Amino acid sequence: KTSLNPNDLGPLPPGWEERIHLDGRTFYIDHNSKITQWEDPRLQNPAITGP
């Protein structure tokens, strides 16, 4: 199984920011909706992941 390299996905969507949590995990901030999440928003785009 090959793992996706986030660098291959291009930039984050407008308004998003990638940060490192105190425990070392990466999380994502959506400044548009004022939410945070652990999942990379680029992986949730149907145009990238397919049907």
Rank of each mutant, 00 (worst) to 15 (best):
W38Y: 12
Y28R: 03
K1T: 06
T36A: 05
I20Q: 10
L12T: 04
Q37T: 15
L4K: 15
I35V: 09
T49E: 10
N45M: 09
P14Q: 09
S3P: 06
P6N: 15
G24I: 00
L12C: 01
E18P: 03
N7P: 12
N45F: 02
P11K: 08
H21W: 12
G24N: 02
G15M: 04
T49V: 08
K34P: 00
H31W: 04
L22C: 08
L12F: 11
L9F: 07
G15I: 04
P41Y: 00
R19N: 05
N45T: 13
Q44R: 12
S33G: 05
I29M: 10
Q44G: 13
K1H: 01
F27R: 09
P46W: 07
P46T: 12
W16H: 05
D8T: 11
T26F: 06
Q37S: 13
D30R: 03
G10E: 08
R42P: 04
A47F: 08
D8P: 08
L12R: 00
I29Y: 13
P11Q: 11
H21V: 06
P13E: 03
R25P: 03
D23I: 01
K34Y: 05
I35W: 06
Q37D: 03
N7V: 10
G50C: 06
G24H: 00
R19K: 08
R19T: 05
G15Q: 06
G15L: 02
L22M: 14
L43H: 10
W38A: 13
E39C: 08
T49Y: 06
G10H: 03
A47M: 08
D30Q: 04
P41T: 00
T2E: 11
S3L: 05
E18Y: 04
T2K: 12
I29Q: 09
K34I: 00
W38M: 10
Q37R: 02
K34E: 07
S3R: 05
S3W: 00
F27N: 08
R42E: 01
D23N: 12
T49F: 09
E17S: 07
P6I: 14
P11V: 08
Y28V: 01
L4I: 10
D8Q: 08
I29W: 06
D30F: 03
D40W: 00
T49M: 11
G10M: 03
Q37I: 01
N5E: 14
W16E: 05
E18W: 00
I29N: 05
D30V: 00
Q44D: 14
R42C: 01
K34F: 03
P51T: 14
Y28A: 04
P6Y: 11
D23L: 03
D23M: 03
R25V: 03
D30M: 01
D30L: 02
I35E: 09
I35N: 12
D40V: 01
W38N: 12
I35L: 13
L4Y: 11
H31K: 15
K34L: 06
L12S: 02
T26N: 09
I29A: 06
Q44S: 12
L22W: 09
E17A: 01
N45E: 12
E18K: 06
I29V: 14
G24E: 01
Y28I: 07
K1G: 00
E18D: 02
S3F: 15
P11S: 11
P14D: 14
N32E: 13
T26H: 15
L43C: 11
R42K: 05
I29D: 04
G15F: 03
I20W: 07
P14W: 04
L22Y: 14
D8V: 10
E18T: 07
I20D: 06
E18Q: 13
G10R: 07
T2W: 01
L22H: 15
E17Y: 00
A47I: 09
R19M: 07
P11R: 09
S3C: 05
I20K: 15
L12I: 03
P6T: 15
K1N: 12
H21Y: 10
L4Q: 13
D23K: 06
T2Q: 13
N7E: 13
H31V: 11
I29P: 04
N5A: 09
T49S: 11
S3Y: 12
P46V: 13
E18S: 13
R19Q: 05
T36C: 15
D30I: 00
L4W: 06
R42L: 01
P46N: 07
P11W: 02
D23E: 02
E17F: 01
G15P: 04
P6R: 14
H21R: 10
P41K: 00
I48E: 09
R42W: 00
I20E: 14
G50S: 09
H21P: 02
L12V: 02
K1P: 01
N5W: 03
N32V: 12
G24V: 00
T36Y: 03
P46S: 12
D30H: 15
E39D: 11
L43N: 09
N7C: 13
L22P: 15
H21Q: 13
P14K: 12
W16P: 05
G50E: 15
P13L: 01
P46A: 12
G24Q: 01
E39W: 04
L22S: 15
N7A: 13
R19I: 09
Y28N: 01
R19F: 06
P6W: 09
P41A: 00
L4C: 07
G24T: 00
E17H: 09
P14F: 12
P14C: 11
H31L: 12
D40P: 04
L9M: 05
A47C: 12
P14Y: 12
T26Y: 11
R42Q: 02
P13T: 00
N7Q: 10
Y28Q: 04
K34D: 12
G10V: 09
P13W: 01
A47S: 12
G24P: 00
P51G: 15
G50F: 15
P46G: 14
P51V: 02
E18G: 03
R42V: 01
N32S: 11
E39T: 11
D23Y: 01
G50N: 08
N45L: 11
D40M: 02
P11L: 04
I48L: 10
K34Q: 14
N5L: 08
S3I: 09
D40K: 02
D8K: 13
A47V: 12
N7I: 09
W38T: 14
P41S: 01
T49Q: 08
Q44A: 13
D23A: 01
Q44E: 14
W16A: 05
P14V: 10
R19E: 08
G50V: 12
P46R: 13
I48W: 00
P46K: 14
I35F: 09
D40I: 02
G15R: 03
P11Y: 02
N45I: 11
K34G: 13
N32R: 12
D8W: 04
T2R: 05
Q37E: 01
W38L: 09
E17I: 04
L4N: 06
R25M: 03
P6A: 15
N32L: 09
R25N: 09
T26S: 11
P13D: 06
N32P: 02
P13I: 00
L12W: 01
N7H: 10
L4R: 07
E17K: 02
W38F: 14
D40A: 03
F27A: 11
Y28M: 00
R42H: 02
D8S: 10
A47H: 15
